[in-house]
Simulated assay, not measured.
Amino acid sequence: MNPNPLKILVLFYSQHGATYNLARQIARGVESVAGCEAVLRTVPKVSAVCEAVESSIPDSGAPYVQADDLKTCAALALGSPTRFGNMAAAMKYFIDGTIPQWLGAELSGKPATVFTSTSSLHGGQESTLLTMMLPLLHHGMIISGIPFSESALSRTQSGGTPYGASHAAGADNQAALSTEEAELAFAQGRRLAELAVKLAG
């Protein structure tokens, strides 16, 4: 076992569990690569009320992200549900607060990837993934997607894009991933970790 594994930050926001399930599959893919450790983190809800009453530790699931998680990670997978073709406010609020990390070039040169979920099949997945990449490019990160050499990308009847893993939850917010969605998220995590290993070497 590697005493100093490369830490791959899987940072997500999830309300109904679908984005969390994608994050867990990405983490599994990360940890299929020798010498890599997935670090699952989330962000709190954001509103005037939430900021006043939100606990500093989530009741369940992944811990809230800390500034040090960004500094020490070797790569980043960023995930959010879609809100009108863009990331959710909670994730945008967090990203907008990473100016100190930008000034310190803490993420520059590190690989990154993005993932999302929507309730409808054409609910803005690809625009969300593309707009999530923009702040990562400003941070100097190296963006990785999913190549069509992953056969599930051609087989999927629900989520999954070359820009990143995705899930279509339907009107009843089904959080369970399809076989192809899970396969693509796993492949995306594995690919991110492999890039991190190559760059670290």
Rank of each mutant, 00 (worst) to 15 (best):
161 T>Y: 13
173 N>E: 11
130 L>Q: 14
132 M>R: 00
26 I>Q: 00
46 V>F: 15
164 G>D: 05
3 P>S: 03
150 E>N: 12
192 L>F: 01
33 V>D: 12
177 L>T: 15
24 R>N: 14
172 D>S: 14
148 F>P: 02
161 T>F: 12
148 F>E: 08
104 G>M: 05
13 Y>K: 02
186 F>P: 01
78 L>S: 02
104 G>V: 06
23 A>H: 03
72 T>E: 13
181 E>D: 06
163 Y>L: 03
163 Y>V: 04
76 L>E: 02
161 T>W: 10
53 V>T: 04
117 S>H: 03
11 L>M: 00
130 L>F: 03
27 A>T: 09
181 E>P: 05
3 P>M: 01
173 N>D: 14
197 V>D: 07
47 S>A: 02
64 Y>Q: 02
118 T>S: 15
130 L>R: 11
193 A>I: 08
186 F>Q: 09
161 T>Q: 10
30 V>F: 06
160 G>E: 01
132 M>D: 04
39 V>Q: 12
54 E>Q: 14
132 M>W: 09
31 E>M: 08
9 L>T: 06
12 F>H: 15
74 A>H: 08
24 R>I: 13
109 G>P: 01
10 V>G: 12
166 S>P: 05
166 S>F: 09
175 A>E: 14
102 W>C: 04
80 S>Q: 02
82 T>Q: 12
60 S>F: 14
188 Q>S: 12
86 N>C: 13
200 A>C: 04
83 R>P: 03
96 D>R: 08
188 Q>P: 00
123 G>N: 03
7 K>A: 10
44 P>D: 00
191 R>D: 08
194 E>R: 10
26 I>H: 01
99 I>Q: 13
117 S>V: 09
144 S>N: 11
136 L>D: 09
37 E>W: 05
121 L>Y: 15
155 R>C: 01
78 L>A: 02
108 S>P: 03
142 I>Y: 08
87 M>V: 09
145 G>I: 01
8 I>E: 12
